[in-house]
Design a protein around this nucleic acid. Sequence first.
DNA 1: TTGAAAGCGGTACCAT
DNA 2: ATGGTACCGCTTTCAA
Lengths: 327, 327
Amino acid sequence: MAATIKDVARLAGVSQSSVSRALAAPERVRPETRERVERAVARLGYHPSRIARGLSTGRTGTIGFVVPDIANPFFPGIVKAAQRRSREFGLSVLLADSDEDPAIEMDLIRTLTKQVDGFVLCAPRAGDDDLRAVCDDIPVVLLNRRVGQLPSIIFDNADGVRQALAHLAALGHRRVAYVAGPRTSWVNRERLRAVRSVAAAMRLEVVEAGNVSPDFEGGVAGADLVLAASVTAVIAYNDMIGLGLISRFGARGVRVPDDVSIIGFDDIPASALVSPALSTVSQPKDRCGRAGIDLLTDLLNERGRAGGARTPLPTRLIVRASTGPVP
Amino acid sequence: MAATIKDVARLAGVSQSSVSRALAAPERVRPETRERVERAVARLGYHPSRIARGLSTGRTGTIGFVVPDIANPFFPGIVKAAQRRSREFGLSVLLADSDEDPAIEMDLIRTLTKQVDGFVLCAPRAGDDDLRAVCDDIPVVLLNRRVGQLPSIIFDNADGVRQALAHLAALGHRRVAYVAGPRTSWVNRERLRAVRSVAAAMRLEVVEAGNVSPDFEGGVAGADLVLAASVTAVIAYNDMIGLGLISRFGARGVRVPDDVSIIGFDDIPASALVSPALSTVSQPKDRCGRAGIDLLTDLLNERGRAGGARTPLPTRLIVRASTGPVP
DNA sequence: TTGAAAGCGGTACCAT
DNA sequence: ATGGTACCGCTTTCAA
């Protein structure tokens, strides 16, 4: 079977220790020794076993990455960036999908804990206390969620809302609906809070519709709620809802943006493809994934333990065809 | 730190061996012993270390899942199903994204090999020989790709093409374009071959356009190629290309489906959302992901080593607004 | 600079 | 049914 460090040692005519050293700290062995080892390694096609190494070092070289739903187009971008960054550090990514279920999420975390050096929890659905408990056992970085002082990377939701409302106000809208996502979503609460305070500051009227599920069907359902509220513009919790709104409005003969303007959140790929294309508050998913890994590796190396108070990542409004002047 | 098997043994007043047995083969220890162990386990919150176990058993309980691009909406469905199924077996999934690069793909496989029990390679981009080499080292299941007799799960592309062409023929179309995806894609070659032979049998004329990249931009580029060929219908290598076609046709004033009909492959979520909605050949992604894991676990348990000649998974044409009668 | 040996946390064989 | 013990492959003292 696969060559072990012993095989290399024998072939090179040195001890295991020397092989280990030659690989981990080349400067600590005589050049000649190093060369003999290297030759043996090459001849045998030797790759050290990560799990054996893990057993003795306590480091697995693997990080756990948990997402609520990999089929939700918001997450792949983040996962991909995290994956790339991890590769640069020589780390593997153990991806787990919790199916939006807090119980499965905690279960996943529990079983993976022995297998990974740390976790990146992307928009975790678990409760604050559960999350805090996990953090006591193992390094954890939260993405898109803030829990006390736990290390986390978040987007500047409030500023995104501000940009969206400013855009609508500039177009003359005075009465705006917010179609809310899941009550359990931290991000939803953030956006809702921002909508309220910013709208008040801008003297806009706000109608809250929902909560609806954060998908296309949720948007379809939300559309009728919105129509009953006689607003001229809508901000949706996310793009999938926004897409559902567009579709249902079309079916009911409500023209977008002539009769009503729509803005979503997330800038998922489909938003640019539908017509009318959906205006949206875009978030730098790649930066988020990258930053998550960077922060976690810092934690793993005991650097900057505090880490809690990272400034939020900037968001950016993308104006597309779904927003227009007030009718 | 975390409790080890020793701690449990001490607390339960038995030997390590008994603890190990009580956990792995409860029927092989006296009920009383088992109970003492269980109590100790509960009190200590003990979870066996997978990596330590892995070292001695040679099994990691983890499978490697490699995809070319997790951001491609075709893959998340498969990954998710595989993940679910793995959970049922108590296996973890190490997901790796090769960024569509055959070299990265092989690199990933190489480094992960020591860390997983086997691989599921989803639509691998590597060459046949490389793939064969991997299979010699470690159990592997191929998804959406066939290489000799290697174990694999594929879709019935030929039948999908047949359904698509039959639909178009029934609508009166006689001259059809195929917008080809990457030349390196096994699936593209399969579909192209099927288009040729089925069209010949149905006495349809076929024009080949492309190859284009398998994304929205590829479709945009392909649209102009198609227009120059004066056909009344198009089959696209995949839905992303189909979406690009719809968009570009719209921009050039070509009406879909009045002037030209379009059919894609994959049934990605966005296809149902655009307008006109894209007709597409749908493939059972969940079954594929599940079957991949099932086949791999069979392999891991030395059952049904042959496995090569699985019958392809059925595909199904979904007719939506993008196909209509010949102009 | 190098080698011997003691773990890391389990499993599994062999006596008892 | 149970305990003792030799590994699994690698890292890391500790001496030499």
